[in-house]
């Protein structure tokens, strides 16, 4: 509880400062602009507002010679709200609860399979390339939602900040390639698309799923939360037993 109070004080201090107001304002402006571009390009996955915003802001910080750490401190309110915002996923979940309840154990099997294959494959790829252990440990949390991934990475010998970047990249890649993957495998099954997107590509996949249909979004939301909880609980235990 006291930790939350301290966090809150830091966030409050950063908003009240001039640079906080300035950078949050800039971020909001660029985000609104990115959303317009996304709409104008017919919701193409390459123009996801997150991708455009990050590129434009990154470029701006580079041109103005502002360190990213300073930008992150100034905009800590936005990052801090990520957790509470995740709670809003309860809404699509609630609306589709009846449909989800009927799926039972089949849903669990599909989610667990996706939740195990994605990190295992990523870990193995980095192992083959002899990448540093901290990178492969961070890779294990790439398919779960950012706040949970950062906490879990800290527990398993990964790096929380890199975890955030891996998580986002996975989400963006997932949202971008999903139309092709689904087309390749054929059959228009909105429920299965939701399960795949939520399990593998967390909240960004869920955002994409919400664009496809409400049912897809609801299944993505439940897959995201089930896989998130499972990974966050199982992974630290598994790793401490192996060590």
């Amino acid at each position: 509880m006291s930790e939350i109070v301290i966090q809150f004080q830091q966030v409050a201090a950063s908003i009240l400062s001039l640079s906080g107001l300035f950078w949050i304002g800039i971020t909001v402006t660029i985000y609104v602009f990115s959303k317009r571009i996304h709409t104008l390009t017919g919701n193409h996955p390459l123009t996801l507002p997150l991708v455009i915003s990050a590129l434009v802001l990154g470029g701006l910080l580079f041109v103005l010679d502002v360190p990213v750490s300073e930008f992150q401190r100034a905009t800590s309110l936005i990052h801090w709200l990520l957790g509470p915002v995740t709670v809003a996923l309860a809404v699509p979940l609630h609306h589709q609860y009846q449909r989800i309840a009927g799926l039972g154990w089949r849903l669990w099997v599909a989610i667990v399979a996706g939740g195990v294959i994605a990190p295992a494959l990523a870990w193995f790829t980095l192992y083959l390339f002899n990448a540093p252990l901290m990178l492969s440990m961070t890779m294990l949390v790439k398919s779960i939602t950012t706040p949970l991934a950062m906490e879990t990475a800290a527990l398993t010998g990964g790096v929380p900040a890199i975890a955030a970047v891996f998580v986002i990249s996975t989400g963006v890649v997932g949202a971008m390639v999903c139309p092709w993957v689904f087309k390749l495998l054929g059959g228009n099954n909105p429920a299965a698309q939701g399960v795949a997107l939520g399990t593998v590509a967390h909240a960004i996949g869920t955002a994409k799923a919400l664009q496809l249909s409400e049912l897809t979004g609801a299944l993505a939301a439940i897959s995201l939360s089930l896989n998130g909880v499972l990974t966050a609980f199982v992974l630290p235990v598994l790793i401490s037993t192996l060590e």
Partner: peptide, 13 residues
């Protein structure tokens, strides 16, 4: 929702 991920993404630098 994706707005809230922007500062985290820039952590890549």
């Amino acid at each position: 929702m994706s707005f809230f991920f922007i500062p985290a993404v820039l952590g890549i630098a």
